[in-house]
Amino acid sequence: MLTYRQTPPIPALGGIVARFSQRRCREAQRHVPAFDLPARLDRFIEFYLGEPVRVGTGAESPRAVPEVVLVAPHTRPGKRLQMLGDVDTFTIHFEPTGPHRLFGLPLQGLADHALAAPDALGTAVLRLRDRLARAPDFDARVACATAWLGERLAAARPADGLDALVAARITPGMGPAAATDNGRVALWARQLGWSERHLHRRFIERTGLPPSLHGRLLRFQSLMQAHARAPASPLTQLALEAGYFDQSHCIRDCRAFTGQPPGAFLAAWPDLGRP
């Protein structure tokens, strides 16, 4: 059976880290069949502390991933994930501009990539993996990760107006659909005293995606979360809750981000805890 735990960060990491999570499963292949990954907005560091998961495409057999990976947003489907043996993962999930603020890591060009984390962040991340592997439980792992991140806070870039505006896009009740409105981008540029071109460039540097695509993925992620909360709800209701203007836009995005219509994708998506 697959078990999932998550917890928010301490206040000092707010605006940089979204949450910590852990997935564990003995003999995972018996409980979680191989499945195709959709496009996704998450930015995270994932530590594989048991058997490595395997990722491939339709044209290649799944291969074991590195012990620690840095994953940027993915804008298209096509990757197939396979879990074998005893799976034990610990994940640091970041806010949209968190990696840029904490590590000074420009994200432009990293979309649709998963990197060996030491190549991007240095070998200290491997020492953290060793501490996580020795930690006796989830709470101890969170404490290890919090201490490691806290050591880097002093050098973190302070939040500015753009970070605040990007964070506001994912605040419940803000209306994800509004985030794709060109008028909203123009308004942000005026608020910051920037040109729209400069805003667009900075947005990609900090999040890895242009504002319009970021907004579409945000709506799609909201759709998956709405379905997880109420799987029996009709698609029309889920789409409206997620911020879509109508069902046709929802269907278009689902096909673009999963390769399937919404009904087929949501019915087949495995229960891995939080989507």
Rank of each mutant, 00 (worst) to 15 (best):
E151Q: 15
D163T: 04
A159H: 08
A117P: 13
Q29K: 07
T91H: 05
G104F: 03
A256W: 02
M83Y: 14
G193M: 05
L209P: 00
D181P: 00
L132I: 13
R197Y: 07
P8F: 03
G175P: 00
A189F: 10
L153D: 07
A242F: 01
L132D: 14
A186V: 07
V185T: 11
P52G: 14
W269D: 08
L209H: 03
F90R: 06
L13W: 11
D36W: 08
F90A: 13
R219Q: 13
A34W: 06
A133C: 15
R201K: 01
L162K: 05
I16C: 01
D112S: 08
Q237I: 04
A230V: 02
N182F: 10
G215Y: 01
D112L: 06
D139M: 04
T236R: 01
L49E: 13
H249A: 13
G150K: 04
S61K: 05
G122H: 09
I204C: 10
G175E: 00
A239K: 03
D163W: 02
G109H: 10
S222W: 02
T89P: 10
Y48H: 15
A154R: 15
V166W: 06
P77L: 00
R24A: 11
P270F: 11
G208A: 01
L218H: 07
M1N: 07
D253P: 07
F257W: 00
L2P: 15
G109F: 09
V125N: 10
R141F: 04
R127V: 03
R206K: 07
P96N: 02
A230L: 02
A177H: 12
V65A: 14
F265E: 05
G173T: 04
H74A: 12
E196S: 12
P106L: 06
P176G: 02
A116L: 06
A147Y: 09
A268W: 09
L126F: 02
R127I: 00
T258W: 02
A59Y: 03
V125E: 09
A256Y: 03
A147S: 13
A147L: 13
R157M: 08
L70Q: 08
T123G: 06
A59K: 04
M224H: 04
H100D: 03
S248K: 12
C254K: 04
P234I: 05
A18R: 09
D86A: 14
F257Q: 00
P66K: 01
P176S: 04
L128D: 07
F35Q: 13
V68I: 14
P231Q: 02
L153T: 05
F265H: 09
Q247L: 15
F90N: 14
